[in-house]
Simulated assay, not measured.
Amino acid sequence: MAIKDSAAVIGLGLIGGSIAKALKKMGIKVMGLDSDEQTLAMAKSEGIETHCFNTQGMAGETAIPDIFSHTGIIFLCVPVSFISSTVKLIANHVPRGAIITDTGSVKKVIVRDVEAVLPDGVSFVGGHPMAGSERSGFGWAREDMFYGAPYILTPTPGTDAEILWTMVKLVRDLGAKPIIMSPEEHDRVVAAVSHLPQIISTTLVNAVAEVHPEGSVMDLAGGGWRDTTRIAGSNAVMWKDILISNKDEILPLISAFKEQLSVLESAIKSSDEAVIKGRFQNAKAYKK
């Protein structure tokens, strides 16, 4: 089964929609599946074959076997909590030789749960494109979303080398930079560079909203506020799943952040110039 035959993208949000558009530009026949009629209409208007699909399966008269019978690769671009259940739902209808991959921001739990329900003859390679924005939905999807962005692949010891190489080439074709690491290493690293920043940005906005509930302070907000809080507008359902699924890696980072914040708080209270200056210098040096 060759990827060039056909690809399916389940979940046509920002990431799934961008993958669908990029694959279509590459000349691959793309089927887009989603439960939202407006999303399907937008995708169809751009020449993507569409089918209604929800957590229970197909909606309407089309049967699952007819959708996936000639599909070389299936992208699961649904919330983390639905990935393994979606694999279980379509497992008996995916042809031998096909590849299933995902775009979830957590990998250890997903890989474990998917491999438990994966049918014989079908391969799974965990994936996570480190791209996107605080926007959500197909309307914000772009075919160049992944240009120059890291795209993490998380094979396991049982992953076939040829299958992994196929995924590496596809990621490069999407314009991204493939990075290979274990599911465990992925979760540890991404907790630091993606999950904690999201928590801090969201908490910052909530803290300011608590102190200034009227919101008039935003009239004075400049670039620093915009840069720090841009991702606070991210999808709540998606992030709920991510934070719960990767809590083992996230909680120690929250503790470390609270400790750092406490050190700075104490230094400000005591007007300890040396500590305050040292915290800023350390941060600048590490970032550089």
Rank of each mutant, 00 (worst) to 15 (best):
G60T: 06
D248R: 02
M1F: 11
S123A: 15
I242V: 14
A176R: 01
K107C: 10
G158E: 11
G121P: 14
E143F: 10
V111T: 15
V9R: 01
D36R: 01
S45A: 15
R135M: 12
G233F: 00
K107N: 08
V109N: 11
E61P: 08
I231K: 00
H186S: 04
V109D: 14
Q56F: 08
A283C: 13
V78E: 02
L118D: 05
N206E: 15
I110Q: 03
E61W: 00
P65D: 07
M238I: 09
A149N: 01
P252T: 11
A207E: 03
I276D: 07
F280E: 05
S182Q: 06
A7V: 15
G126I: 07
L40V: 07
M58R: 02
A285M: 11
S18K: 09
S194K: 01
K169I: 14
E46W: 00
F280W: 10
V237Q: 07
M42C: 04
V30D: 07
V109I: 13
L261N: 08
G224T: 02
N246F: 03
V122R: 03
E115W: 01
P119D: 09
K277E: 15
G27Y: 13
N206G: 04
V211I: 14
G233Y: 01
L220H: 09
R226Q: 11
A2E: 14
I152F: 13
P79N: 06
T229G: 05
R279F: 12
D113T: 06
E259C: 09
K269M: 10
G57L: 05
V217N: 00
A20T: 09
T62C: 08
V80C: 07
S85D: 14
I163S: 05
V122A: 08
F124T: 07
H70Q: 15
A191V: 08
S262V: 06
G104K: 02
M31K: 12
V111C: 06
L220N: 02
I276K: 05
M42D: 09
L264F: 14
V9W: 03
S271P: 04
D248I: 07
T50G: 06
L204G: 09
F138A: 08
H93L: 00
T55D: 09
D241E: 11
T166S: 15
N206T: 11
A7P: 13
